[in-house]
Amino acid sequence: MNWKLYFSTSVGKKIQMALTGLFLIVFLIVHCYVNAQIFYNDNGVRFTEAAHFMGTNFLIRATEIGLFGFLILHIVQGLSLYFANNSKRPSRYAVSAGNATSKWYSRSMALLGTLILLFLVMHLYKFWAPNRWSQLSTGHELDLYAAMREEFQIMWVVGVYLFGCFSLAWHLVHGFYSAFQTLGLGMHRYKGMIKAVGVGFSIIVPLIFAAMPIAFHFHIIN
């Protein structure tokens, strides 16, 4: 069997979801680290420096193409799996087990993912897209620190960001563990460790992200 066939079975698709998901987890760490520079409260000096590096370094920009590729693959594959799986039980149960046998978030990955996607569209439209357009058209980057300060004064924008972080957290609680299980590491020796690290990651990273709009909105950082 060749690579294409290996990746197209149900387990192959699951491996695609796991590998792209892990890549996105690594991206979250980098993104979170760079943005957390705002907490130095130095009027955005360190943040702007880091953002400049991320926006201009050739390797980072090349990886960005890969990031979008993997993100799209994760979304398309995830949604197609959702619809395919949904069609495997045409006649529904009158009474379902609900939360008695599984966790709500593990059954709601497509919904949580879609919420993250909707958030992401707005997020890219507000920050990423104007900045890249400015780089293309004028050769200069935008002052993203000032942009954040301005955007996060608006209550509903802060609300949407917090909701995005909330969806991300629950998506990660299942996604983090699930990726390792798919790669075959969900055995007794690692399972507890992976679950614990996963839950920790799912709380800490979205919490740091959520702290950003809050800090700007309530003028904790200026």
Partner: peptide
């Protein structure tokens, strides 16, 4: 369907087959 690591199978299996087997 495809497995999405939900774990309802393990919870309902009358023989206690573990998800470790899926790993």
């Amino acid at each position: 369907g495809s497995c999405t690591n939900i774990g309802a199978c393990e919870a309902e299996c009358p023989k206690g087959i573990s998800l470790e087997n899926i790993a």
